[in-house]
Amino acid sequence: MNVTPDLDARFREVALREGLVDVRYDIIDSPIGGLFVAATDRGLARIHFHPDGQEDELARIFGVRVLRSPLDDIRRELDEYFDGTRTSFDLPLDLRVAPFHADVLRELALVPYGRTETYGALAAKVGRPRAARAVGTVMNRNPIPIILPCHRIIGANGSLTGYAGGLDIKRRLLELEGATLLF
């Protein structure tokens, strides 16, 4: 006896409307593959490049009432970004990170579309000019890549250095934005 898609969708809708969900997620198709996207009542909370097994991580951080449901606002902005018609995002975020990470991510959000910045320069902007390596760690653990554009942060010599989604994706995002790349 299988639950029909209608019945399933109705249940998910009512569960959300009644405020019974700690965190919802969806998998959004994109030119760089399926993106695992999660949001709480406060806003967008996670984007992962590798969808498998992320529900457990959500349950640990946000609570066990994890439910899949469409995230239309986020999907629309991401679609527009990948179409090249959107250069900044207009989404509330639910960032639950340590204060230093929050400072760095706030500065990161200001790096403009199509531009790059070095780890050291970003460190200087948060008043820690010698903390380039620590900034690298913050980029590596960025909970909301793409929206918080850690792909725009590169090495002092212009090399792409690293990216949680893989260097190939970092390069594709920068190319999409028309950034000038040395490597």
Partner: peptide, 13 residues
């Protein structure tokens, strides 16, 4: 406790 989604998919039918 598994994420609710997994519990739900496991038993809904």
């Amino acid at each position: 406790i598994p994420p609710f989604e997994r519990f739900y998919l496991g038993y809904r039918d």
